[in-house]
Design a binder for these strands. Structure first.
Lengths: 197, 197, 197, 197
DNA sequence: CATGAATGAGATTTCATTCAT
DNA sequence: CATGAATGAAATCTCATTCAT
């Protein structure tokens, strides 16, 4: 059904992915139509199905792509950084910047995908887990080095991810067009040191 | 068109609200059908429209109802508690318990609502803001009393809400049926004191 | 199914008929709802079904009632009138006045009833034929007395009915609030003597 | 939403229009379903919406199409005719023939359209006015040339239109399959010279 | 007799997906 | 490879009708 691989290099796939990101971001998964994605991407409607098995597959692919992108950026930048605290701070900053670069991507991530076919659902989970994994290992490292408390790393990772996502989403909704850097510092500080003085 | 008020007390409204919660939780807003909600609620399809103006209105009503419920519980319990830290800790605990009592409600909250009609969208935002407001004022109080750092209260509130929601969601997805108490303590500690030792 | 007879005298039937006339006139057969008719009539929705077998039955009854009313008025007034020309002129005038008294009744008459059940359809046809019959006999009389040409009476009757209806309808649509008497004279003259000088 | 233009020539539009004419004629606007129109036209249900914005748009388009057709035929034939009387007579004949060629179209014209959306309603009115306009100008010409009495042209036009429509409708209902030519002459004579000897 | 809450058949419309060109 | 006209499944919502009170 999905023959999204064995196709010649022509750049169309990327075009569609970009169009999809835009449209999904603006209208959400259900609000978007394949036709509009095709239009924005500048290809025919049928072409979308040449590169992606279904609308859902397209959506998941966008998420995968973006999340992988973020994951890679973070992992790369993390190599030149020492100390779990610094690493975590950097991760959060990059994450935050990422959310503000591709503005409305948060919406995409928070989209209602309940009822995805198993396989697609699996892929989303994996993509997300992939990125969360980065946070997790930083946390684990921090715990090992005595920098962080002995918490459940995964839970901590999700807590951080949630904090970033919700704040980013809130900023979006309230049209805070250029979220200031202080915001991030506060967020970083919140994650590292909590609210108490 | 929506005459969701002036109808005799018969419990049907509550029945529908409960059914809707179940179905929306399992299938999300778009995955759910009014027909199924009606079935689960044990009423006719038309009856749903007797109490709610539209599927969207029903959805928003579910969110409002639940969020208000949580808000009230928290506010009440907060009155017998001294100290911003204690208050925040309690809020988080109650919030957490709430998410686990009406299990899959997180999903509903995280649903993709892009494209709701303005008025309904407004209602959702308000309901959410209402609950967030409770957190906000606790934080403000804490800042005033010198218990908390001088952060942007709203941002902090969203960060906390996000942390709870994502962890709850993760637990759900991973089928951790009875989220242990340690989890909450860790979450509370994360919010109050952060990750660092 | 239709037990519109054996019910005590309580005036409700008339109330409903009046309400129905109003609502059907304003919204047409399909645009009207039984609920609104009941409201306007000041009775419960169920009560309508106590006096009329169905929405369609109600509609047909309104038409019957009104047409019979017109028919009777015309027949009565015709008795004191001599000469087919004078009789026809009077018929047209009364018809016209009738249409303007119960203003929008033309709409009701012109309503789309395609697909009525046989029995109801029959009743409408009969009611209409009843009134048309009056015109017909006047025309027949005129032909017999040498006042009118030897035309097919029924055709002539329908032509006249059509002329009146369409002009009345046009007046309605164009919001000519108080159709002047000259209008009728012109219409009468048109029917009697045609357009030519 | 309605992209009833920019689609390749494939005859489908005409097919649908024809199917719609048939179905609307038999069942009226409300009695007809888009599904049946599609079936009769031999296309898929969705295809109807490819060519027409809505059921109402389809209906109005049928009316427009047919009325324009009639209007054009009449206008063309009128050019080779001298004298307002002759012109009017010809108009009536053509109108009559038209009604009998596309048999049940009268029903469509007489359909209950109460509650059409404004824009569509406007279109129907315009289409009708277009054709009525032809009659009007013939009448005006006749008045100017002293052939016709000094009546209100529009009223006269509607009276004539009404006469033709009702007679045609009656013929239809009574299943007078092949309305004889004498009928038309009588109708023409009625319009020109009235009923009186 | 009167009522109106409850019902569900049925209609319009959208849109992901296919396939002939 | 690319396209977009065609399709029909599916979902929301309306409203005539019933029936328990």
């Amino acid at each position: 059904m999905a023959n999204n691989v064995d196709i010649q290099e022509s750049g169309k796939r990327e075009l569609i992915l970009e169009g999809a990101l835009k449209v999904f971001s603006q209208k959400g998964f259900h609000g978007a139509t394949v036709e509009e994605v095709a239009e924005v991407a500048g290809v025919g409607k049928g072409t979308v199905y040449l590169y992606f098995g279904s609308k859902t597959d397209l959506f998941v692919s966008v998420v995968e792509e973006k999340l992988k992108e973020l994951q890679e950026v973070v992992m790369e930048r993390l190599q030149n950084t020492e100390g779990a605290c610094a690493k975590l701070a950097l991760s959060i900053k990059l994450h935050w910047e990422f959310f503000n670069r591709s503005r409305e991507f948060v919406k995409v991530i928070l989209s209602d995908l309940s009822g995805l076919e198993k396989e697609l659902d699996e892929r989303t989970r994996e993509a997300r887990a992939g990125f969360i994994g980065v946070l997790e290992s930083v946390i684990e490292e921090g715990i090992g080095h005595g920098e962080f408390k002995d918490v459940e790393p995964r839970m901590a990772a999700y807590a951080i991810e949630g904090a970033i996502s919700f704040v980013a989403f809130e900023n979006l909704v309230n049209e805070v067009s250029t979220p200031s850097i202080p915001d991030v510092s506060q967020l970083v500080d919140f994650c590292l040191n909590g609210l108490c003085c």
